[in-house]
Nucleic acid binder design. Sequence first.
DNA 1: AGAATTCATTTGTCAGACATTTAAAAGTCT
DNA 2: AGACTTTTAAATGTCTGACAAATGAATTCT
Lengths: 245, 245
Amino acid sequence: MKIDPKSSADLSAQIAKAIRDSIIAGDLIVDERLPSEAELAEQFDVSRSTVREALKRLAAQSLIRTQRGAFGGAFVNRLSYPDAYGQQITTSTLLLSMNDVSFDTACEARYALERSCAPLSAERRTADHLATMRAEIFRQQQPGLTDEAFCASDVAFHRALVDGADNPVLSYQLAGAVEAMQPLMNMITFTARSREAIVALHTRIADAIEAGEGSDACEGLSQLERYTVELARSVMAKRASREAG
Amino acid sequence: MKIDPKSSADLSAQIAKAIRDSIIAGDLIVDERLPSEAELAEQFDVSRSTVREALKRLAAQSLIRTQRGAFGGAFVNRLSYPDAYGQQITTSTLLLSMNDVSFDTACEARYALERSCAPLSAERRTADHLATMRAEIFRQQQPGLTDEAFCASDVAFHRALVDGADNPVLSYQLAGAVEAMQPLMNMITFTARSREAIVALHTRIADAIEAGEGSDACEGLSQLERYTVELARSVMAKRASREAG
DNA sequence: AGAATTCATTTGTCAGACATTTAAAAGTCT
DNA sequence: AGACTTTTAAATGTCTGACAAATGAATTCT
C-alpha cells in the first residue's frame, strides 16, 4: 500500500483508494483488522486526521466497520446484500432524479429487467412469494388507499415477483431499478379506473406465475409497461393543459 | 437539517445522513454550494473535523465534490453515468467476491439481464455498435491472445450489445452485472476449442442483432450461458482432480 | 471461583494552527 | 481605457496535541 505524494489528489482519497484496492484484490480479507489509525498514519506518513478521513470514505461504501475500545479498530466488512441493496437504491434514485431521465426510459428499463426474472420466477417461486403477490393485489383493491400507499404496494408486488426467481444477484440488481422508479411513479395520480386496470394486470401476472407460464407473465408485464407509460403520458398532458389554461 | 445528540451513531455519520437526505429530497439542488465547513460546524454545533469526516463520506458516494480556494467549497454533484457505473461495479464485484456466490448464480443473473436488452438492441443498435461487436469477435480469434485479454474482449462485446439498446439506465444496471463477472471468468482457462465455440456463438448473436431478430439473439445468449456454465464446471472438475491426484 | 476494579488501547471529538489554492479585487503600466 | 500584475480574502487540506468514551483484558478483592 503506497501513495504518491506528487499526485494532485487529496491524500485521504489516495489512502482510501490504496486500502480499497487491497480489499478488492483480496490482500485484506473479510473481518481482518486494519492497523490502528495511529499505525496507519505512521505507515502512510500522514496525520491521524487524514487517515480518519480516508477510513470514513471506506465506511461510507460499507467496505469497513469500526469499533471503539481496546481490541477495537477498523475491520473489513463483508458486504451484505442489504448493504448492497441500499447503495444500489441510493445510486439509482439519484441517477434518475439528477439526469432528467424520461419516464419512458426508466419504465422501459424497469420492465425489461423484470421480464428477465419472470421465467425464472414462474419456475421457482415458493408458495410464500405467490401469497405475497396475492396479498398486495388485495391491498391494492382497498378503496381508502392513498396514491403513495398504492405505489408502495406496487413495489412490494414486483419485489415478490423478482425474489421468486431465487437468484440473490438478480434481486439485488432489480432492487435499484424498481425502487428508484418510485419517486417517478409517485408523480402519477391513480384514479379508481386506472387502479382497476393495474390490479387486473397484476392478477394476470400472478396467475401466470402460479401456472408456471413464464412467457405469459412476460406478456402481462409488457402490457403493464404500455399501460403505465400511457397513464403517465395522459396525467402529464392533463397537468400541462391545466397549467396553460 | 438536524442531528440527534442522544443517538449512538457517530456524529459525522448523522451529519452525512442529514445532508444526504436533503440532497435526495431535493432541498439541495445540483451544483448548489453547501455552507463552508466552518459554517456547517457552527450549524451542527460540532467541530470542523467532524464536519469534514461527514463531507468525505458524501464525497465517497460522489454526492458532492469539493473545490479549494476562495469561492470554493462543497458542491452538490450531478451523479454522472460514469460515476454511477463505477460505484455499481465496485459494489457488485465485492458482493460477488465476498458472499461466495456460485458461478452458476452469477452467470444466470448476467445472461438473464442481457437477454432483457437483446430485443431492444436488435431494434435500435447503430452501425457503430455492430462494428464494435464484429471487431471484438475478430480480436477473439487472434491466436496469441491471453486468457485475460480474451475475457476483456468478451466484456467489450457484451457491452456493445447492451449499449445497443440505447437505454442509459439499462446500460448502467448491466455494467455491474457484466463487469463483476470478470474476476470469475478469469478463473477459467480458455482452450482453442472453447474459444472457437464462444466465437461461433458471438457471431450468431451479432448476426441476429444485425438482422433485427431479438428472439434469435436471446436464444444465442441462452446457448452461450449453457456453454459457459458447462465450461466452468469442467474446468473446476479438472482442477479438483489434479489437486486430488 | 466469581465479582468488582483497574488498566491499556483504540476510536470519537475538539481546538487551534499553518499551508495551499483560487478567484475576485485592487493596483500598475502602457 | 484596457491589459497585465499584485494583493488579498476565503476556503479547503493537513498537522499537532489533547481529552472523552468505550471496551475487552488483566488484576484485585471477596
